[in-house]
């Protein structure tokens, strides 16, 4: 067991190292002098040279990478050129918003995708199956930025059923910072009006962002269910006279679940990608928007920080899923 965890963690470490190398390489590619950008247009040559020396830009790339790694290990991601703050502080502000949105979207995906997938598989080739497949198809083919714009236009502006962009109404101030997830923090503070407000603001972006993942989960659940339904033991169970519902509940769904749960873990990465567009439209102050503005302004210390963190979250979640599994079901370790 321990060896398995160590091996997985070792693999994770290796990926992290590669990720840091890749982000570093990316930053080297940028055709802009970070020192000149940081000091502004009025900087003199000697100022720029001094700053270059100070942040180590005058050294060869390999030395720079070593310095960069050294700072990274101390948790120092450098300073953002645009916001003039430590990148780690910026990320501390923006990351919780994205995690909250991603978790909510994941909830939507699980609550919509899995049940629909089960229903579709049980009524294969019926109208409900066709409808569910249609739903999945549109979800996988629709530009997320269009649905986002449309949803805001309809549900906020026209119908006024749901609140507009942002994480809270403008006049409401954020709950005391515990986790940075407004819904959780509001609940912990026992502030119900704040909680409802935060949840209200989450609904639209979570639905929009979760739609794509719901489609993926639906497909996965459906095919996993169909596969199990075709296996011998189901037929045996049926032959033994178990009623369909019990068969489904006790045998099929249970056995179809592992690949579905793995997919849930893997969808997390695509949620982070989707967040880039969703956050832009919903003025959601998260990692995606921070990444977008940082790339637009060629603020590469910030870009390196974001990509690094984003690239850590995904394999970390997957490793945790795997380890969590292996703790419960030792057979997983074999594969």
């Amino acid at each position: 067991m321990t060896r398995f965890i160590i091996r997985r963690m070792g693999g994770l470490l290796f990926v992290m190292l590669g990720v840091s190398l890749l982000t570093f390489f990316l930053a080297q590619m940028v055709p802009v002098d970070p020192a000149a950008t940081a000091l502004g247009a009025n900087a003199r040559e000697e100022q720029i040279a001094a700053y270059r020396a100070q942040i180590g830009l005058d050294k060869p790339a390999t030395v720079q990478y070593v310095i960069y790694m050294g700072r990274l290990l101390r948790g120092d991601l450098g300073q953002s050129i645009r916001t003039r703050r430590p990148v780690i502080d910026d990320l501390g502000d923006y990351l919780p918003a994205t995690i909250e949105l991603s978790l909510a979207a994941m909830l939507v995906a699980v609550l919509v995708g899995i049940p629909l997938g089960v229903i579709a598989s049980l009524h294969r080739n019926s109208w409900s199956d066709a409808l569910a497949r249609m739903f999945a198809l549109v979800g996988g083919s629709m530009p997320v930025f269009y649905i986002g714009l449309l949803a805001l236009g309809i549900f906020w502006r026209q119908l006024r059923w749901l609140p507009g962009p942002g994480r809270l109404d403008s006049a409401i101030s954020a709950p005391p910072h515990i986790s940075g997830l407004y819904t959780l923090d509001a609940a912990l503070a026992g502030n119900w009006s704040l909680l409802t407000n935060a949840v209200g603001h989450l609904i639209l972006p979570a639905l929009v962002l979760g739609y794509f993942s719901a489609a993926v989960l639906l497909r996965m659940t459906r095919s996993a269910m169909l596969e199990v339904l075709g296996q011998d033991f189901v037929r045996t169970a049926k032959a033994k006279g178990l009623r369909d519902r019990v068969v489904v509940g006790r045998h099929v769904f249970k056995n179809a679940l592992p690949p579905v749960l793995t997919t849930v873990g893997m969808t997390f990465g695509s949620l982070l990608s989707g967040a880039v567009l969703t956050e832009t439209i919903f003025s959601w102050p998260g990692l995606g928007r921070y990444a977008t503005t940082s790339v637009t302004t060629l603020d590469y210390p910030a870009v390196m920080g974001v990509t690094l963190v984003a690239a850590i979250v995904y394999p970390l979640v997957n490793t945790l899923v795997d380890i969590g599994y292996s703790l419960i079901d030792p057979r997983v370790r074999v594969s």
Binding site: S270, T307, I312
Partner: peptide, 19 residues
């Protein structure tokens, strides 16, 4: 593995921005 670690759109954006 390393490439899979990145959320694709964020990496693509960073590359497109750099280029």
């Amino acid at each position: 593995d390393i490439f899979f670690a990145f959320p694709s759109l964020i990496l693509a954006m960073a590359i497109a921005g750099a280029l």
